[in-house]
C-alpha cells in the first residue's frame, strides 16, 4: 500500500469540494436570508451629468457660437433593498391559494408519474429480459427519450397533443385546453421520457440476477407469478427504492415541460411549484415569496430523501 501524502490527498479533493460548496451552499444560505426579507428593486437617480453630443464620426458637435453642444443624462443605478420581515413571507406562501394549488398539483404529478413509470418500467424490463427478436435494436430505440431536451420535448408534445389536427385528435380528448386533462398531458410527457430510464435500470438489474437462482425457484413452483413475487421482486427491491428516490427528486423539479407545453395553464391547472416560484421571482419581482416558496419545497424533498438516507449510504460503501 502506498503511503499517500496528506497534502496530496487534499490537493486532489479540495478543488471540487470548494467549487461545489461555494456555488451551492452559499446560494442556499443567501436564499434562506432572502426568504425572511422583503426585497425591493428600485431604480434610483443618483445624479445628472452633462456630456458632449457627438456626431457620427465621434467628434463633439459645436453650436454656431463655437461652444460644445452638451446633453444632460440622468445617472441611474439599480438599488436593491432588503427589509427584514421575519416569517411574513412564509405565512403568505402557506396561506396563498395559488401556492397550495401548485403544491397539490406537483404532489399528485410526482405520485402518479413515478408510479406509472415504475410499473411500466418493470413490465418492459420483464419483456425485454425474455429472448425476443431484435432486442438490442429495440432497446436502443426505447432509451432515446432519456436524453432528449426536456424543453424541446414539451413543444414536441404540443404538436402531438394538438386537438384540432394532431395525430391523437381522433380521440377527441381536450388534452391541453381542459383543466382536468391538462395535468395528465404533462404527466404523459414525464412518463414518456422517464419510463425508458426505469426500464433500463430494471433490465440491468434483472440481467444481474444469476440464472441458477431462477432455475432453483422453478424446481419449487411452476407459477411464473410466484417466482416473480417471491424471488425476483425481493431481489429488485433495493433498486426499485433507489429509482423511486431519484425519480421523485427529479420530477419534483418540474419546470421545463410546463414552460413549453402548457405555460401553467389552462388557468393555473398545471402550475408547478418551480414554475410558480419562477414567475413570482422574475415576473412579479417578489424575491422573498419565491425564496420562501422554494425553501418549503426544498424542506419537503429533503425530508423525503432523508427517509432513504441510510439505505443510500450503504450503496456507496
Amino acid at each position: 500500500m502506498i503511503r499517500w501524502d496528506k497534502r496530496i490527498k487534499l490537493l486532489f479533493l479540495l478543488p471540487a469540494v470548494i467549487w461545489v460548496l461555494t456555488l451551492t451552499i452559499a446560494p442556499l444560505f443567501f436564499s434562506l436570508y432572502l426568504s425572511f426579507t422583503d426585497v425591493k428593486r428600485e431604480v434610483v437617480i443618483t445624479g445628472v451629468e452633462e456630456i458632449p453630443v457627438l456626431d457620427k464620426d465621434g467628434n463633439p458637435k459645436t453650436r454656431s457660437d463655437g461652444s460644445i453642444r452638451t446633453k444632460k443624462v440622468k445617472q441611474k443605478e439599480l438599488q436593491i433593498k432588503y427589509d427584514w420581515v421575519g416569517f411574513k413571507k412564509y405565512k403568505r406562501v402557506v396561506n396563498d391559494q395559488e401556492y397550495q394549488d401548485a403544491a397539490k398539483f406537483t404532489f399528485i404529478y410526482v405520485i402518479i408519474s413515478v408510479f406509472v413509470e415504475i410499473i411500466l418500467g418493470l413490465f418492459l424490463a420483464f419483456l425485454f429480459n425474455r429472448r425476443i427478436y431484435g432486442r438490442g435494436f429495440m432497446r436502443s430505440l426505447m432509451i432515446l427519450p432519456i436524453f432528449a431536451t426536456p424543453f424541446a420535448i414539451g413543444f414536441m408534445f404540443f404538436t402531438i397533443l394538438f386537438e384540432i389536427s394532431g395525430p391523437l385528435a381522433w380521440m377527441g380528448i381536450p388534452f391541453l385546453s381542459n383543466h382536468n386533462w391538462a395535468p395528465f398531458s404533462v404527466m404523459l410527457v414525464d412518463i414518456w421520457q422517464w419510463t425508458p430510464f426505469c426500464f433500463l435500470v430494471f433490465l440491468a438489474a434483472l440481467q444481474g440476477i444469476p440464472d441458477d437462482l431462477i432455475e432453483a425457484a422453478t424446481l419449487d413452483t411452476k407459477s411464473a407469478y410466484k417466482i416473480w413475487t417471491s424471488v425476483i421482486l425481493p431481489l429488485l427491491q433495493p433498486i426499485i427504492v433507489l429509482v423511486i428516490l431519484l425519480r421523485v427528486a427529479e420530477s419534483a423539479k418540474l419546470y421545463d415541460y410546463i414552460a413549453s407545453l402548457t405555460k401553467g395553464g389552462p388557468g393555473t391547472a398545471t402550475q408547478s411549484v418551480s414554475f410558480l416560484v419562477f414567475n413570482k421571482a422574475f415576473k412579479m419581482n417578489d424575491f422573498g415569496y419565491a425564496s420562501a416558496g422554494s425553501f418549503l419545497m426544498l424542506i419537503v424533498v429533503m425530508v423525503f430523501v432523508m427517509l432513504f438516507f441510510t439505505r443510500l449510504r450503504k450503496t456507496y460503501e
Binding site: L28, F278, A281, F287
Partner: peptide, 17 residues
C-alpha cells in the same frame, strides 16, 4: 445530493449574485 435538490431554491441568489 446536488442533483437531488430542487434548483428553484438556488435560482434567485444566482440571479442577484
Amino acid at each position: 445530493s446536488q442533483r437531488v435538490l430542487p434548483p428553484a431554491a438556488a435560482v434567485v441568489p444566482f440571479f442577484v449574485l
